[in-house]
Design a protein around this nucleic acid. Structure first.
Lengths: 341, 341
DNA sequence: TTGTAAGCGTTATCAA
DNA sequence: TTGATAACGCTTACAA
């Protein structure tokens, strides 16, 4: 019960022969305390190994120095990488972070965010909140006090008026992909991916826009978001009429399956087929995969998020409710880097 | 300042016309309060949308219901997957979790864990601590109060007497790999990987033991833990005399590079070379990679961890200081599934 | 069974 | 510049 107790402000006060308030002042601001007392307190603190209890501090003051990071899916490398970059950037700006994975439960067949997740987060009175990924139910963020900025990263839109959304320009991403394919001589291009969420429908609409821009007819083959689904969908797409010479995939995982289908298609005597992915996960860079993909600018997004969340209120207030679009970057690799005859 | 304030125990008390303590009792235990008052309090709480502030609770009581998860490296899918499984298992047992990524800084060329990471964690008075990954500096965990159990997962040993280490049996893992290779007709086997940490040296020693068991001479080629490093190391290894027909890699990432080198070796007229990895990341299952690998039993480890951390003190005390070994499982895929002539 | 009061580790207000 | 004293939201003896 009382083993290893960390020393408190009280212990330091006793040791230094001053009041608790004095100790508090020394540790919280750098003025209003005489140098003599300050030294005394610091010496006592050092001797006892005292460091302030951050949480008690925020309970008392009602504000804190922490940013809460809510990662929607720990299995998605895109999210964990953004989380890690953001964490580092925030740290450099002097902010501690702590993370929670979203707890998603099913309710009437719909994905719902467990309220306790957000509430536990808020009890800590974070200075700001960073949501990474596509939260199924943004309403739960409505509980967030109005003076706490919310940044939502790598998702399409929030349904939450005050949120600051940080994402790449999907239209531009698709435009880059289609342009690249057109330049390589492709005319018949098909999209392979799901059609069941904010992000996926947005991506499809961007695809159509981009195809339109280059006067091409958009073909589509819907499937789930797994390698196997991509494989099957590509098999079907490649039997289409006209037969596509390029397949644009919803994300890298789907693309891996599509690549597989393309390979067996070629072994069976079919022609070359270009494949592109989305997210530029580090797997796509593996030389056996070498998948052309869209870089979501993970680092830039993390930096921007850190900037906003550590800025003064007057600064982030301006961004409130806005969609901040970053410019995506197409990373061209073997899977599409050949000229279509 | 006072926008959207969450209702407190006091508000509920006022609404229900009882004292704060009564409300507290209703929410913390299920006895000692009359049904009438209980109903009244619950009704008031519901009306106000009250839920207890977990952290204030733990500040006050000195104990809590949540488990702190310390993930050493967010970029390593092995770690984030274990973290996610553990989080879910813990939740099912009624424990909230929250995570921090280790903050590693360099000090005199050595990796050191930032003390603040652990301290911030401890201020929250977690019920238990789960460390996932190879912490560079276990000494920092010495601050953890003696009555808080520490489970360290997926790493070799702790240097911390009280920690409960949860990992696969590395000797057995290597034995399985070597046995598999021997059965396929391999006689000349080389290890490719780093030699710079607890985990890597342990793995090497297991490799030697296993080779000894099958009366084979252990060859080794050291390299960093990246794909590129694996590639270069394999190139060198394949020029060795005697030339290895199988390469055992430190982990999957290194193996990906090694596979690459093997492929170009074969194109240049070399014979078939078996490759094995370690960790069984989901990438190794991609059909274009199809890498034989050791499953670290991520789910089992997470379950075991959850079990221990949510058990009564008398239970986990027994495991204290022990190494709990799980049985690894070799997942055989194309990269090694052929007979060596 | 219920309420009162003290305390968890800190900050904040207000006299001194 | 300093030190009581009252919060913060909750738990927990101890009294009633």
């Amino acid at each position: 019960m009382k083993t290893n107790k960390r020393p408190t402000i009280r212990d330091v006060a006793a040791e230094a022969g001053v009041s608790k308030s004095l100790v508090s002042m020394v540790f919280s601001s750098d003025e209003g305390v005489s140098q003599a007392r300050r030294d005394k307190v610091m010496a006592a603190a050092k001797k006892l190994g005292f460091t302030p209890n951050v949480w008690a501090r925020s309970l008392s003051s009602g504000l804190s120095n922490f940013i809460a990071i809510l990662v929607v899916d720990l299995h998605n490398p895109l999210f964990t990488e953004v989380a890690d970059h953001a964490r580092k950037a925030l740290l450099e700006r002097g902010h501690q972070t702590f993370m929670t994975a979203a707890i998603i439960s099913m309710q009437n067949g719909k994905r719902v965010l467990e309220k306790s997740t957000v509430q536990t987060l808020l009890d800590l009175k974070p200075r700001g909140i960073l949501v990474i990924g596509d939260l199924p139910d943004k309403a739960s963020l409505k509980q967030v006090p109005e003076e706490v900025p919310i940044v939502i990263a790598t998702t399409v839109h929030s349904g939450l008026k005050r949120a600051i959304v940080l994402r790449i320009d999907e239209d531009e991403a698709m435009r880059q992909i289609v342009q690249h394919l057109v330049e390589k001589g492709h005319q018949t291009v098909s999209y392979v991916g799901p059609d069941d969420s904010d992000v996926s429908t947005a991506r499809i609409s961007s695809f159509k826009k981009a195809m339109d821009l280059y006067k091409l007819t958009p073909h589509m083959q819907f499937c789930d978001r797994t390698e196997e689904a991509g494989y099957s969908a590509a098999k079907i797409a490649l039997q289409g009429e006209p037969q596509p010479t390029a397949l644009i995939c919803f994300n890298d995982v789907v693309a891996f399956g599509v690549q597989e289908a393309v390979e067996s298609f070629q072994k069976a005597g079919g022609g070359q087929v270009a494949v592109t992915g989305f997210d530029n996960t580090y797997i796509s860079a593996l030389s056996r995969i070498s998948l052309t993909s869209i870089e979501q600018e993970k680092v830039a997004i993390a930096m921007r998020a850190a900037e906003i969340l550590s800025a003064d209120e007057s600064v982030w207030r301006e961004a409130e409710g806005k969609n901040l679009l970053l410019v995506p970057r197409l990373v061209i690799r073997d899977s599409s880097n050949f000229v279509q005859p």
